[in-house]
Design a protein around this nucleic acid. Structure first.
Length: 810
DNA sequence: AGCCCTGTCCTTTTT
DNA sequence: GGACAGGGCT
């Protein structure tokens, strides 16, 4: 440690030789940690210890007494990242040190600020934060009111547009006429304006407002900004390459005070262009903040040589980048596997089989270490399920893997999967709570006024809405008034009266009882629980369980306010404990994570890169897709398996799809080809022309492709497994072949082949023909599609897509 | 009011 | 293969 630093350390620290938190940093990391003054740009490649640098830097500022915890502003993009940073600071400096008040996401920090200054933009401090669903419903109403054709110009599209404006801190008046014209023949800005007005009346914000309001407060009220300048003397930003214009402005305004701003990022990992991120922000940093110190972190600690080389070679195809040369001292390791498979099911099957093989090694070594030969055990290190990840481009690709894993009892967890707080029943409870808290919340009112059914139907709600609008009051207020008249009759009247009485009672309740009791009471008294209990469908059961979980989650917070703030922003409940599970994730959600074994399926044109990126956006979008590929490959520590299928179901239709262009951009020297399509080297010419037809085996054979696994289906599957029923019809391509004795897919060129066990496969299937299936019995062919048959079986009567083997019946 | 059927559109990626 | 809207029916 250098002398100047030593002097700043408290005596107790100086008594030690080197602050323990600085031990083991490489020179570049050390430089990044110790450059405390002025603007600093840390260009940090994948796996180069970025988070470590950030947390050590925070620890360093605190330990040297340069700053107190409340003077630090540390911004991340995800709550997960914020949480981790907090933990790691505590790990460095001891318990309690992670209590940095201004450490969080852009949105949560900005919300915290906005609650303190809400009145400056016409809001109350307890404003509601709307989610996408609320936002869409609100916009829909406004679009209707404006008389715009909602079919041609959807609320979703407008929401996206407004969001993109807010991402650039544009108020309705600042939107250019040209952009305004992109939707609803120019009426978009009027609706935007009406929307903002409506939000104000509802005392609500959307996500974009959290930042935009603060920016305008900073700009219009210098005294407020000055207050933050005095307080916040050290700014730190994670994932700077993903900041959008609004975030940039927000940061810049705050950084004008001390100028001590340290941003960390990697231009090669900028993958959020679609939500307004500007790679340009990081490319421009040195110009924006003159005198910036630039530190490059290029030593990779994560991936083996072949993996790193593959990723580097791939990303080198991008033009818009600062350029880094990552290196590692690790060994070469295994080559990156590239595998072509027959179809999506085959891909899932292959991945599952490989996971079983990988984890089986663990059992073997465990036995060995019991028995005695430890050296052997060490050459065969144990692999847990949690050492494996499957990373996909889009969420719909997860289904095939989930299905397969369920069948084989491979435990898995979907990262960032369907969100607990977006479930209908959870949102209903939230709406009740919101309405109890604030009468103005019309969106909440509309959501639950007839949930459970109270006889207040659409027509009554419409009446209330127009009345509220004409009187300029909330719908709840209008409802109270209308009950005084006889404008509303019958069931609607009784229902509405009861609803309002309930609300008033619960509101009084809320004064004295805890928020948990409040939730329990309202679920009970509103008849919501009863409604679900009366419903015998399996989904109702799940919903009841979700509600129990919800009440439990609420108990973890001190107050209703604290809870609502949490769910509105954080939206991810810490899923109880990390079990030993395979992780399934989108590539986006995988950023910042790593696994020893990573599967990267679905590398096909139209899937990855996505069709949208190919059609629109041009080279810029494709470069972002390539960065996504780079992020994917660099998640792997010791082994990466890329795969692409020849046939895939898209919109429920079978299509033959060409391999991704990114496959051709991989460096052959670091790749091991393992093609099951028999298609050989993808890098050779003629790749994309009719190639799928030459499959030497690839009889898919993995049984059926049933309807999407509803919760009920899953449970049935699990019960079956508990009873020791067959796990999956076939376990591998080889066994498929052996079992059936054919090496061709059952259906070729749109014409079905009759597949028999003896291999007589020449007869053709046609629509209407009666067939016999090993597992499902007799059925009728409803459709021949690609290499699949759609069959209605007599047992069960549901249609199934069949890609395994059937015989002509009778 | 509510249920079932049919047709349409659809899918990136997230705070 | 699914969400959702609209129409026709009870």
């Amino acid at each position: 440690m250098d002398d100047s630093m030593a002097e700043r350390l408290p005596l107790s620290r100086r008594a030690m030789a080197l602050p323990p938190y600085l031990e083991g940093l490489n020179p570049d990391q050390r430089a990044a940690v110790e450059a405390l003054d002025g603007p600093v740009l840390v260009l940090s490649g994948a796996g180069t210890g970025k988070t470590r640098v950030l947390t050590t830097r925070l620890a360093h500022l605190l330990a040297t007494g340069r700053a107190q915890a409340w003077q630090l502003l540390a911004v991340t993009f995800t709550n997960k990242a914020a949480r981790e940073m907090r933990h790691r600071v505590e790990a460095l400096l001891g318990p309690g040190s992670g209590g940095i008040p201004w450490l969080g996401t852009f949105h949560s920090i900005s919300a915290q600020m906005l609650r303190r200054h809400a009145e400056l933009v016409g809001l109350k401090p307890n404003f509601t934060i709307l989610d996408t669903d609320d936002q869409n419903r609100l916009l829909k109403q406004l679009i209707e009111a404006e008389g715009v054709d909602e079919k041609r110009f959807t609320a979703r599209a407008l929401a996206g547009l407004i969001d993109s404006w807010k991402n650039r801190a544009l108020k309705p008046a600042s939107v250019s006429a040209k952009e305004a014209h992109a939707w609803g023949e120019g009426r978009s800005t009027e609706i935007y304006k009406a929307y903002q007005e409506r939000l104000r009346v509802l005392n609500a914000c959307d996500f974009g407002d959290l930042l935009m309001h603060m920016i305008h407060i900073f700009q219009d009220h210098p005294d407020v900004l000055a207050e933050y300048h005095r307080k916040l003397t050290y700014l730190m930003v994670d994932e700077y390459q993903d900041t959008n214009v609004a975030q940039y402005l927000w940061l810049r305004l705050l950084a004008l005070g001390s100028k001590n701003i340290c941003v960390v990022g990697d231009d090669d990992q900028s993958i959020y262009g679609w939500r307004g991120a500007e790679v340009d922000n990081i490319l421009r940093f040195e110009r924006d903040f003159p005198g910036a110190v630039v530190v490059r972190l290029e030593r990779n600690y994560r991936s083996s040589g072949h993996i790193l080389a593959t990723a580097s070679h791939l990303i080198a195809h991008n033009r818009a980048r600062l350029g880094k040369t990552l290196w590692t001292q690790d060994e070469e390791g295994e080559k990156v596997v590239v595998r072509g498979v027959w179809d999506g099911d085959g891909e899932a099957r292959g991945v599952a089989d490989e996971i079983e093989a990988w984890t089986a090694a663990a059992q073997f070594s465990a036995q060995r270490s019991d028995g005695g030969d430890l050296r052997e055990a060490r050459t065969n290190p144990p692999h847990s399920f949690s050492s494996v990840a499957v990373l996909v481009r889009a969420a719909w690709q997860m289904r095939a893997f989930e299905e397969r894993f369920l069948m084989l009892k491979i435990p898995y967890k979907v990262i960032g999967g369907p969100r607990f707080f977006e479930r209908a029943e959870v949102r209903d409870v939230h709406a009740y709570l919101r309405l109890i808290r604030s009468e103005d919340d019309d969106l909440a009112f509309e959501r639950v006024v007839n949930q459970p059914k109270r006889g207040v139907g659409d027509s009554s709600v419409a009446k209330l809405a127009s009345l509220a609008r004409s009187m300029g009051v909330s719908m709840l207020r209008a409802a109270r008034d209308i009950l005084e008249t006889d404008e509303i009759k019958g069931a609607a009247r009784t229902g509405l009266r009861a609803f309002i009485a309930d609300l008033d009672r619960w509101r009084r309740w809320a004064q004295e009882k805890s928020h948990v009791e409040l939730a329990e009471t309202l679920l009970d008294e509103s008849g919501y629980t009863a409604m679900l209990q009366a419903d015998k469908s399996p989904t109702a059961q799940t919903r009841l369980e979700n509600l129990k979980e919800l009440v439990q989650a609420m108990g973890q917070f001190d107050s209703l306010e604290a809870y609502l703030e949490h769910v509105q922003l954080v939206l991810d409940l810490e899923a109880g404990g990390d079990g030993d599970e395979v992780h399934i994730s989108t590539l986006h959600a995988a950023k910042g994570l790593e696994w020893p074994l990573v599967f990267l399926p679905g590398w096909e044109e139209g899937v990855f890169p996505s069709q949208r990126a190919i059609d629109e956006g041009g080279e810029k979008s494709l470069e972002e897709e390539r960065r996504l590929a780079y992020v994917g490959v660099t998640r792997a520590r010791t082994k990466a398996v890329i795969s692409f299928a020849a046939n895939r179901q898209i919109y429920g239709r079978w299509q033959t799809v060409p391999p991704s262009r990114f496959i051709d951009e991989l460096p052959e020297a670091h790749i091991a080809l393992a093609s099951e399509t028999g298609y050989g080297a993808p890098a050779r010419g003629g790749v994309r022309d009719g190639w799928a037809r030459f499959s030497p085996h690839g009889a898919p054979g993995a049984g059926f492709n049933s309807a999407y696994p509803s919760p009920g289906w899953r449970r049935a599957q699990e019960r079956g497994q508990e009873r020791g029923q067959e796990r999956g019809p076939h376990r591998s391509i080889e066994r498929d072949q052996e079992r059936v004795g054919v090496s061709k897919p059952p259906v070729i060129d749109g014409q079905a082949r009759l597949i028999t066990k003896s291999g007589e496969d020449d007869a053709k299937f046609r629509k209407g023909q009666m067939v016999l299936h090993d597992k499902f019995g007799r059925g009728v062919i409803r459709m021949v599609e690609g290499n699949k048959l759609v069959v209605i079986f007599e047992s069960g009567g549901e249609k199934r897509v069949i890609d395994s083997f059937v015989r002509a019946a009778g």
